[in-house]
Nucleic acid binder design. Structure first.
Lengths: 223, 223
DNA sequence: TGCCATATTATGTCTAGACATAAAAGTAGA
DNA sequence: TCTACTTTTATGTCTAGACATAATATGGCA
């Protein structure tokens, strides 16, 4: 393990654990130099890597700060429904659930929340969400009437890893009814598993009508 | 413009132009030090950035080499159909075409190629491709009977930028027939525009049956 | 109080050099 | 010829220090 990686990992661990929350000013370079007993260039290299990873921001004279998390992945344009204006969350169910659609993923007891996102009066997305209560205990008593679980989690779980799966599906009876469309309409289904420090935080499945939504991704890279 | 960025840009330009092809050994660090009149650390920083960008690979003692392009985007798992074994290309049409589905993208005269990718005997994807003949003149005389245009282009256009669009569609009559499925089946449609130095290289639209294929994406990053 | 010039300071970039490391190339012995 | 050891060499990591830059903080002036 190289020294700059050790410094990077030490800082990253404190950010991902939530100890250093978004906006927190991490120690100055000269303080890290003292803490790790190395040259400033080595600390700077570690901090540069954290900037590239999107974990911190550096400002001259002011210092380095834990970056504010963003739901938008840099390369894959997945909307954060809860943040978009004009969207309305409509809660339909909230209960303890067995994770029948989440096979192969380890989790504790789960809370299930379902709802519909609206845009301009019409339903845009159907959301089914499972929250691992052992990872996020506050979720058990949260009020998802006033705030959608997506944005609620954003404020309660600072950092995480995620895996996405995108597929085309035909809307079943329940989905078609909820979205106000005929059964069998082609929909884009986005699934996202979110972990924090190895523990499942939440699983969410969003269904978008194919004619109202598409994903875009840009790559300034290799073909 | 900082010195390390100038070095990086100079190397990147020679790679993207095709002057230095994949596998080419770029000058040793000490040669770049002499060329740019700077310290080795500065050259090394520029090369590290090129590694992070996926443009070069560095091997101790051997030197640094232009990386072999990969169709797989790092974060979004889009398969390179032409490279997967067991896939068979079946050409159905090849003609000059008006780009009716490519509005808003500027291009020269286009060559149209259509075909079906097979896996284990069953059709897996339907492909419609438009190639800009003014950007890739050799395409006009290429033989797409023996080689799919995707892999052919890979060998003739070294580096490029790309934009993707992903949506769910219902298969129309022609698509359903080609894929051997009922009309209206939910399919994942992947579109990709590819540019080289600002000029369109190719547009491709691939249609995958929803029940036979899905995309996955992992992000070790922010939510 | 409000504004502007100045000083301070943390980051940004770069240098010249040291030592480590891994892999290729060369060498000697079986 | 084949194998094992040694040498060479390009990259990998790090140091101690220099100067640049930009944004904050400070102090004086109106």
């Amino acid at each position: 393990m190289t020294l700059d990686k050790r410094i990077r990992d030490a800082i990253e661990a404190r950010i991902r654990s939530g100890e250093w929350r978004p906006g927190y000013r991490i120690p100055f370079e000269h303080e890290l130099v003292a803490e790790f007993g190395c040259a400033r260039a080595t600390v700077s290299k570690a901090l540069s890597a954290l900037v590239a990873a999107g974990l911190i921001e550096r400002r001259r004279k002011a210092g380095s700060f834990v970056a504010h998390p963003q739901v938008h992945a840099a390369l894959l344009d997945i909307p954060d429904l809860a943040r978009l204006e004009g969207y309305r969350w409509e809660r339909t169910a909230c209960a303890t659930a067995a994770p029948e659609e989440m096979v192969e993923v380890q989790s504790g007891p789960l809370l299930r929340v379902e709802g519909i996102h609206h845009a301009d009066g019409a339903p845009l997305a159907l959301e089914r969400r499972l929250i691992d209560v052992s990872t996020v205990p506050e979720a058990a008593t949260a009020d998802f009437e006033t705030e959608a679980p997506g944005s609620w989690l954003l404020g309660h779980v600072p950092w995480s890893d995620a895996r996405h799966r995108i597929r085309a599906i035909a809307a079943d009876r329940a989905q078609a009814t909820a979205l106000g469309m005929p059964i069998g309409v082609a929909c884009l289904q986005l699934e996202r598993w979110t972990w924090r420090a190895g523990a499942l935080v939440t699983y969410v499945r969003q269904v978008f009508p194919g004619d109202r939504y598409d994903l875009t991704a840009e790559f300034g890279s290799r073909r």
